[in-house]
Design a protein around this nucleic acid. Structure first.
Lengths: 188, 188
DNA sequence: GGAGCAGTATACCACTCGGTATATAAGGTG
DNA sequence: CACCTTATATACCGAGTGGTATACTGCTCC
């Protein structure tokens, strides 16, 4: 593995476990077996390193989500696919998802929060646009797209967090349950 | 206000907005209009300051939650009361709840996560014990207490976060909806 | 009135922080 | 070969970190 990838790898590990502010540049370069000028050569700054890390991971992630959220005039099925994609991605990228969760809930003025804000908003837009399209078939959704997107994402994150703690297994049955529970929430 | 309270006040503000790791001791004492030895006189260390802050706030918080979670053989009603208490507390202590959320999702090996861990576990136990008691009346809950507690708390936190972003209002109608949605989740 | 103690400030500590000036080595290109 | 670019290391920077040694003040209690 080249040095750039190695740095990203080590940074993800450390940020996920101890947080962006809790990890120093020195520790990252030691973990990667290189020196600081190498890191600054590739990423320019600590923040630049975080940005590159988020760019690479969210690039793939949001592409997957976008594909799953394509509306096919069957909302329950689309929700099911969406939940499944989230669970699948979280299973395959558990360290990244751990970091994503802590960044999502990071204090609003923290450096880390600013870095992740755009990517999170992108995910919101993807899910919102699903509900906007669906509202042509399902009439009773007026003005609630944002809140639907937020609660769906909230529910998904709750279960992914539980799985990171080893409390649940993100299997097909859970996908079905989460999707069903969410759809029921809309109609109640 | 005495200096001790002033320090706690300023620390809560700063930690909630920029995170424990993102705020230096110097900044806290400047905000409180005192000097470092005063802070170290009262709290011994930066971590001691965080511990005292959490102790004071969670002391009150968990007492309220414990009272609301007393089981009266009517689970839907108890859930309703519990959700209402969380919402009420979050409304009256929005800065603290903002900090609580970021600490709850803080990376597992971070200093802040260690500090909050015990208090969060206490909340979990309160809610778990509610479901354990209820399971004598409602048979189909075997072994799921932990997962019920986690998903209820997860749903509550999702809506409180939305309210902190100004997206929803934590009113009685929302309390009812959240409680209903959760109960439906149990029986599905 | 003197002793002791809580509370506070000045001035400092060693260390770590993010970041950089400079040099060197390797590899491709004219 | 000379030259440029990329990639890397040594050694350093000023500023900020959490934390403290010391001294002074004012209050309480014998």
């Amino acid at each position: 593995m080249n040095n750039r990838s190695k740095i990203l790898e080590v940074a993800l590990d450390l940020f996920a476990m101890r947080g962006y502010d809790g990890v120093g540049v020195q520790e990252i370069v030691e973990g990667a077996g290189i020196t600081k000028p190498t890191l600054y050569h590739y990423f320019g700054s600590k923040r630049g390193l975080l940005d590159s890390l988020l760019q690479e991971k969210f690039g793939l992630f949001n592409k997957i989500i976008k594909k799953s959220a394509l509306y096919n005039h069957d909302l329950p099925l689309t929700i099911n696919n969406l939940v499944e994609s989230y669970f699948q991605f979280a299973k395959e990228n558990s360290r990244f998802y751990r970091m994503k969760l802590s960044l999502f809930f990071a204090p609003p003025m923290s450096e880390a929060s600013k870095a992740v804000d755009g990517f999170i908003k992108e995910q919101y837009k993807i899910i919102e646009s699903l509900f906007i399209k669906a509202s042509k078939d399902y009439g009773n959704m007026k003005g609630r797209h944002r809140s639907y997107a937020a609660t769906l994402l909230g529910t998904i994150n709750t279960y992914i967090r539980l799985s990171l703690e080893g409390e649940v297994d993100l299997n097909q049955e859970l996908v079905r349950r989460v999707a069903h529970q969410f759809m029921h929430g809309i109609y109640s």
